[in-house]
């Protein structure tokens, strides 16, 4: 366990600069939004929604990929086992997800309490979660973060196992499968049914349940790739 915690700590060391950047970008995006909507004054329509939040989730993906591609060869070079590395990365990813979820829920609550920073601006809030309690809110903010991290980690493990060809091959396969699925849905005219299914999902299952399920599948896939990978 000592070694697992040591590797997790090295992940944190490696990401110290990186942990700050998404927050800086988020802060700038937020400041720009405040400025723009502040200067619009009364012209603001009904509850504007911005996409600023996406930057946090995209950095989750990027750091997941880097965490494997750069830390895996380093860790194995220092006599760490693949299993220790994977457990440490899992712990680190969960901790990172929890930190972001708490941060976003708090900011969202502040936004709610100040009626959108006095501007009726919706930057951190998602609207559809207003009726839920804090634990559910944490899940709804956290699960997509976990999913994005796992997509990054999966890309990273495919890279360390099968290098560049593996990554491009994998992306091609995913595009093919999704394209084929979309084509079949179109051919049989089932898009309304898909729409109904999505509309029937609660915010909890749509934003927390399904993303968590996919994240778990990706974690299993990553471990399968990593256990025979060489630095």
């Amino acid at each position: 366990m000592n070694r697992v915690l040591a590797v997790a700590r090295l992940q944190a060391v490696g990401r110290r600069d990186g942990l700050l950047w998404p927050l800086v970008i988020l802060g700038i995006a937020f400041a720009v939004n405040l400025f723009v909507f502040g200067s619009m004054g009364d012209e603001i329509g009904d509850r504007p929604v911005t996409g600023g939040l996406a930057s946090v989730y995209i950095t989750g993906l990027a750091f997941g990929a880097v965490a494997v591609a750069q830390q895996f060869p380093f860790a194995l070079g220092l006599s760490v086992t693949r299993r220790e590395f994977a457990i440490a990365l899992g712990l680190f990813t969960l901790a990172q997800t929890a930190i972001y979820a708490v941060l976003l829920v708090v900011l969202q609550a502040v936004e709610h309490a100040t009626d959108g920073w006095g501007l009726r601006l919706r930057f951190f809030g998602l609207g559809l979660i207003d009726g839920y309690g804090v634990p559910t809110q944490l899940l709804i903010y956290g699960a997509p973060m976990l999913l994005m991290s796992l997509i990054g980690i999966t890309l990273g493990t495919v890279y360390v196992r099968w290098r560049t060809n593996g990554v491009f091959g994998g992306i091609c396969a995913v595009v093919l499968v999704l394209g084929l699925a979309a084509g079949l849905v179109t051919k049989y005219g089932r898009w309304p049914a898909v729409g109904d299914w999505l509309a029937d999902q609660s915010a909890l299952s749509l934003f927390a349940g399904w993303p968590s399920l996919v994240a778990v599948l990706l974690a299993l896939l990553s471990w399968t790739a990593l256990r025979r990978a060489t630095p």
Binding site: R3, A6, V7, R9, L10, V13, G14, R15, R16, D17, G18, V66, Q70, Q71, P73, F74, G77, L78, S79, V80, P231
Partner: peptide
């Protein structure tokens, strides 16, 4: 195992590598 081709994370400084040695 010290090898010529050892790779280090991009963000690591010399002191971080020594920390890794101390921890592992």
């Amino acid at each position: 195992f010290v090898k010529e081709s050892q790779r280090y994370p991009d963000t690591f400084r010399v002191r971080n590598v020594l920390l890794a040695g101390r921890l592992l």
